[in-house]
Every structure is written in structure tokens, then in C-alpha cells.
Amino acid sequence: MTEPLLVCEHVSFAYRHESVLRDVSLTIGPGEMVALVGPNGSGKSTLLRIAVGLLEPQEGTARLFGETPGHGRHHGRLGYVPQRPNLGDGLAATVGDIVSSGRLTRTGWWRRGGPGDRSAVGHALEAVGLVDLRDERLSRLSGGQQQRAFIARALAGEPDLLVLDEPVAGVDVESQEGFRTALVDLVRERGGTVLLVSHELSAVAGDLDRVIVLKERIRFDGPPGGLAADEGIHLGVHDADLPFWLERII
């Protein structure tokens, strides 16, 4: 394995006195498709925010592309899909506007994009199946379509590592399919890495290389097959299965 993209070593974090993460260590290497799962309040969102530099670990260290997350020159290599932002009517932007802004990680915030940037935006739209809705206003899209637009924004930056926070919560079937295609395309075609935090894994269950189960500490880290062998759990049979097997494993 070459240089790892994300390394967490002995990371701990607490809100006030309530410990959320305790001594978490993990390494994500190139070309992997990894799911980070856990029940509500398991600290998975906190871990993700530490990984992208929105939070600093209180103990331990996090390294992203060998640098401190949020500092350094790695922004262009990272694609981030936050939990769907709450967009009010105030924002009258088109899908094209949103996806184009994803190129800012590569071009710099002050520069106008060139032909290369436009084609990257086009590819990203294609990958999530939103080419036809490019000029449609974001606020007039369904929740799933909006989510795909935000994934396309991250893809437009042609990231080496794509980090997604609850990307399929409340998303329709067609969008789930488009979402899966986009992720698989990134990993298989371009050798990218995906780290995904989610409740629902059914959409991508068959494509995962690795599952990390988190509840304050890491409870399981290995291929989905291992989870089946150790615990007798199969991913992706049914959406509603997830909470059950989480309870059994933790």
C-alpha cells in the first residue's frame, strides 16, 4: 500500500464532559471504499469533522494527505459532501452554479474557470445524472436531486478522497442509484477513495471494501465479509436491518 490518505491516531474528543470519541485510530488508504457506521451519537460525524479539519482532536492526531486537516495544500485533493444544508428561498442558485463552485478547490476562489474546469463540471453532472437539470434552480429539485448536486460539487474538484456525511438520508431510489454509480465510478475508474458515513448502506453495500463500526471506540474494522463471518450479519438486505445488526454488534 502506498501513502495513506487519512490517518487518525489515538483520537479522543468530548463535548463538555461527555466523551464522544475515545482512542480512535484508523488508516484509510488509496482506492478504498469505506463505510463508517454507528448508531446516533456514536461519534461518527465528529470523527468526520475532525478528518476534514472542521474540528481539532482534543487528544491524538489526525493527518490528511500527510498534513494537519484544514491546514496545508490538500484542499484540492479532498471532496466533501456535508449533510444536506438547509437551503432557504433566499438562495436562488442553479444546479450549475452549485456544481461549478466545487471547482474552487482547484482553481482558487478568485479565479474564473477555464475550459478544463468546465469539462470537469460537465463530468461531475454526468456522473450523478443531473446534466438535464443544470440550469434548474436548486430549490425546485427534490431532496435526492439536491443531494446529488452536492455530490457533483465535490466530484467537480476531481478529489482523491471523497468524504460524505449521511449522503442517502431520505433520498429517493433513483437518486440512490445515481449516487452509487458516481461513487463506484470514482473508485474503480479513477482510483479514488471514498469514506462514507451513513445509516443506510443498502445502496452501496455490494461495493464496499471495508466497514468500520464506531461507537465511541472502533468496534469492528474489516471487510463486509468479515462482519458476516464474525457476527453473522449481511449488509444491505434491507434498509431497516441496520439498526438491528448495530445493536447486536455493539
Binding site: V52, G53, L54, G70, H75, G76, L78, Y80, P82, P85, L87, L91, A93, D97, I98, S101, G102, L104, T105, W109, W110, R111, R112, R153, G157
Partner: peptide
């Protein structure tokens, strides 16, 4: 600044992660 301001208007946290 309009590209950066727009990205921030959409989602300020995303803009921070994007290195703006």
C-alpha cells in the same frame, strides 16, 4: 470575490473545508 462569497452563502462549512 463573488465566487467565494457565493460558495460561502451556500454552505460556509463546505467553503472552509474547500480551503476558502
Amino acid at each position: 470575490t463573488h465566487r467565494g462569497l457565493f460558495a460561502m452563502a451556500v454552505d460556509e462549512e463546505w467553503a472552509r473545508v474547500a480551503g476558502l
